[in-house]
Design a protein around this nucleic acid. Structure first.
Length: 877
DNA sequence: ATAGGGTTAG
């Protein structure tokens, strides 16, 4: 009775724990307790009764005006109690709208919610809408409840916003639904709105809002909730304190979590379990296992979640032995029939690489759940067995197991790995049809699938339609653009992201290759600054990507000093540095680095040999190249690939050993590709061997008939030998193919902005100034006796110029633009999409001397550093 | 009627 009197006090509903129990007790006084406890149908009846009694004026129900209508409503409610929705719907659809009472609608909606029948719920809603009963009564909240229970958050919210709401229950439910789909922001906004409106939060609210703040890593806000709930007296109510513990763990505040745990006097099994899983997510799984041992020694009841948490700890440490003993423990404890235990055991084995044990558990399962199937699918996907994953997905659907967001993301991952766009698109339809596309991880997985299948347009359309994006969403798009050679888009998105979210380790490692590919040094420096500000530099992937970026932006010294600071150098770190030296023409340094790497005990792989052989070829180190080729084959037992052969052919051909190179190609155990022949063809150009060039070129043409580069090369070889008739014939031959060549373009970064010069586009910034500067150079160069092949070609015929060299000379425009725009003494850094043209190379040499500036040009093959009239490539390009 | 720990995903 004390409880009843308390109901008059407004404070009563916020002071736990007695309160939640109090609510039940009050209902118990209504005499429903035994029904509530024992049957779902009784629960339905109690709900119907509650609505019925609350809405009708007292006395009204006992004096029906119209007996048939009364009986009709009673009949429908009877079927509701029995859970016979089909019968209910039949009666409803045959009824006149005016015959249905409020309480009847409430019962039907409750039943729809209970059996999660959205279709019927919608039908009832439309009947309500077309009647004049209105929703500004008990029906409004009931409708919201129905929609939310049936998983239709959109419609639930729409009605929620229409009706006045001071009932905390509905707010909590809405908060939870948003949290479930990962829209924590909306939950937080709703929570703030609750406070504005004076809707007082209860323990349910706090549990949910703490989960949201944990997900957003909003430590300060969570701490504020902590203070608030203490003031309201929830400080020793287990559901709330347990929520606080997991909040602190999820935010990485292990200390705060432990402090709460230590102070608790009435820990329950959930508290203990929270400690074990909390330690695990903070990569302190060993401490979690200690907690488990404490539990055992203190004789605390262990439950299913405990075993599962400890197994998760095992997965985290990767100690399969401990997992196996827990497996044995679970069998002894009779828990091996529990599907959840089997699921995590299955997952543990699959994550620890023991797919056989995983499969064995899977096949011995009495009953498969969506989780078991998903674990297997994920395991198959991890092993690259996409077909098996997809087959299992269809199999589970056939078995009647409804895929959830986890299975859908897993299977999308499998599609992404195998690039099976068709399966992926089919899944996309399934996801739309099942309203899963509001879920953030699902959308992320979809974007990833499209990105990995090369369809960035589809990925973008999902991305731009996502109301909520998390870090993974942005990272997926940025990575997609980077990997699909759309560096501008990647960088653009990286910039946009910073308005919304903080880039993490993944973001920076994804965007750095884009900076590298554009040679966007200023942008790369900004990313570097972000890395330093946020302490991301210690990560190995990050530091390797940074070194690579600086290398490819031409800042080799900076790259080396960063490389030296990398605390743990792995194989990739070394490869980046060796390749870096190589493309800058520092063959000796590359070799030194290679030796250094071997001294540290790192075993080179085939990629490291590509980088060292390329380094040798860029520096013309023939003997050294051969030595590495032998080491690779004989010492490291690595079978050479096409890339290795191409390097060797390049080395031989450049040094004039053309016939040896030809013989080398003929004895290759694998079929040579166009690149291998192309290397020899370039050698033929250097050494003016037209006869061999013609023979070699035919191989290249045959293997890559659409590649313009090889025709251009041969045309230039003819032009340089003044064989104009052959040039003409070749031109005719080219004309028969419908070849499209990448337009020649060069770009330069000035104050963080890219200025691009494209062949054939005659409008560019400062055009007049650039043209007159180029003219000035040309005159002066002639005076000083520079010999330009371009001019030579021109004397034979005005029209020959472009057709023979096939160069738009855009690098020359960029060079002039740089000198006009950059402050004195600043290095002119130009990037070009094709190989540099011979004449522009000459111009650059000359300009570097004349204006006393250093010019760094990165072409599609390597770096050229022009200084005081000479180039670092020494002709090796 | 909604919540706190545990399995599956990006």
């Amino acid at each position: 009775m004390l409880l009843i009197t308390q109901t008059t006090s407004t404070n009563m509903w916020v002071s736990p724990p007695h309160h939640s129990q109090g609510e039940d007790s009050i209902r118990n006084h209504n005499g429903f307790v035994s029904f509530i406890k024992f049957s779902r149908i009784s629960r339905l009846s109690s709900n119907a009764y509650n609505s019925y009694t609350t809405v009708l004026p007292s006395g009204f129900s006992k004096q029906p005006i119209n007996q048939p209508i009364r009986d009709f409503n009673t009949q429908i409610r009877k079927f509701c109690e029995m859970g016979n929705l089909k019968m209910v719907m039949d009666l409803v659809s045959n009824a006149k709208k005016s015959e249905l009472e409020l309480a009847t609608y409430c019962s039907i909606l409750q039943l729809c919610a209970d059996v999660k029948s959205l279709d019927d719920g919608r039908k009832v809603h439309s009947i309500i809408d077309s009647s004049d009963i209105g929703i500004h009564n008990a029906l409004g909240p009931k409708l919201v409840f129905m929609y939310l229970s049936c998983g239709d958050l959109t419609d639930g919210r729409r009605i929620f916003d229409k009706i006045a709401n001071e009932k905390v229950f509905l707010w909590n439910m809405l908060l939870n639904e948003y949290a479930k789909i990962g829209n924590f922001e909306e939950s937080i906004i709703l929570y703030e709105k609750m406070q504005e409106l004076g809707v007082e939060a209860n323990s349910y609210t706090f549990s949910c809002i703490l989960k949201c703040y944990a997900a957003k890593k909003s430590v300060a806000q969570g701490e504020r909730v902590h203070g608030y709930l203490l003031r309201l007296g929830f400080g020793s109510y287990n559901p709330v304190v347990n929520s606080l513990i997991s909040f602190y763990f999820k935010c990485g505040r292990t200390d705060s979590a432990c402090k709460l745990f230590d102070k608790m006097c009435d820990r329950d099994v959930i508290t203990w379990n929270s400690m074990i899983s909390g330690y695990t997510v903070n990569n302190l799984a060993d401490k979690g296992i200690e907690v488990f041992i404490d539990m055992l020694t203190m004789g605390i009841r262990v439950d299913l979640a405990t075993i599962i948490s400890v197994l998760a700890a095992c997965v985290n440490i990767g100690v399969i032995s401990l997992g196996r003993s827990l497996h044995a423990y679970a069998i002894k404890a009779g828990l091996n029939k529990e599907i959840t235990v089997n699921n995590i055991l299955l997952d543990m084995y699959s994550k620890c690489g023991d797919m056989d044990s995983a499969t064995q558990i899977f096949h011995n399962l009495g009953e498969r759940s969506v989780v078991s199937c998903t674990s297997m699918i994920a395991g198959y996907a991890r092993d690259g067995l996409s077909d098996k994953a997809i087959a299992l997905f269809h199999e589970m659907k056939m078995e009647g197991i409804k895929p959830d967001i986890f299975s859908v993301t897993s299977i999308l991952h499998a599609c992404a790995c195998s690039g099976s766009l068709e399966n992926g698109k089919e899944l996309h339809n399934y996801i739309r049809a099942n309203n899963m596309d509001l879920n953030v991880p699902v959308s992320n997985a979809l974007m990833d699938m499209y990105a990995k299948s090369g369809s960035m347009d589809d990925a973008l359309s999902i991305f731009s339609q996502m109301p909520i994006k998390d870090t993974v969403s942005w990272n997926t798009m940025i990575a997609g653009y980077s990997k699909n050679s759309m560096p501008n888009e990647a960088i653009h998105l990286f910039v946009a992201m910073q308005q919304e979210l903080k880039p993490d380790i993944i973001t920076v490692t994804c965007v750095l290759p884009s900076c590298a590919s554009l040679a966007a040094l200023d942008r790369g420096r900004e990313v570097h600054a972000h890395i330093l500000r946020n302490g991301l530099a210690l990560d190995n992937h990050v530091s390797n990507a940074l070194v690579d970026m600086y290398v490819k932006c031409g800042a080799l010294v900076l790259a080396r000093s960063l490389f030296d600071k990398t605390p743990v150098k792995n194989l990739v770190s070394w490869i980046v540095m060796i390749a870096g030296y190589g493309m800058h023409g520092f063959g000796r340094e590359a070799i030194a680095a290679f030796k250094e790497m071997r001294k540290t005990g790192i075993v080179p792989d085939e990629v490291s040999f590509i980088s060292i052989l390329c380094a040798c070829s860029h520096s013309g180190l023939l003997h050294e190249g051969w030595r590495f080729f032998d080491i690779m084959r004989n010492d490291c037992k690595i079978e050479p690939k096409l890339e290795h052969y191409a390097c060797m052919v390049d080395l031989l051909a450049r040094s004039g050993k053309l016939s040896k190179a030809y013989g080398f190609i003929e004895t290759m155990p694998i079929e040579p590709n166009a690149a291998v022949w192309g290397a020899l063809l370039r050698g033929c150009r250097i050494h003016h061997d037209i006869k061999l060039a013609e023979k070699v070129a035919e191989h290249a043409f045959e293997l890559e008939p659409d590649n313009m580069g090889y025709y251009v090369l041969l045309a230039n070889i003819y032009a340089e030998a003044q064989k104009w008739e052959e040039v003409k014939e070749l031109k005719e031959r080219i004309g028969r193919h419908s070849l499209r060549k990448n337009p020649d373009c060069s770009w330069i970064e000035v104050k963080g902005k890219h200025h691009i010069f494209v062949d054939g586009v005659n409008s560019y910034p400062q055009a007049k100034k650039i043209d007159s500067l180029l003219k000035k150079w040309s005159t002066k160069m002639k005076e000083e006796g520079y010999f330009l092949r371009l001019n030579y070609a021109l004397t034979k015929g005005e029209q020959m110029q472009k057709e023979t060299t096939f160069c738009g000379h855009t690098e020359r425009l960029a060079m002039a633009f740089g000198i006009l725009s950059l402050p004195p003494r600043k290095v002119i850094r130009i990037t070009k999409n094709l190989r540099v043209c011979i004449d522009c190379h000459e111009v650059a040499k000359y300009v570097s001397k004349m204006v006393g500036r250093e010019i760094v040009l990165r072409d599609s093959n390597r770096f050229h550093q022009f200084k005081n009239g000479s180039c670092s490539c020494r002709g090796y390009w």
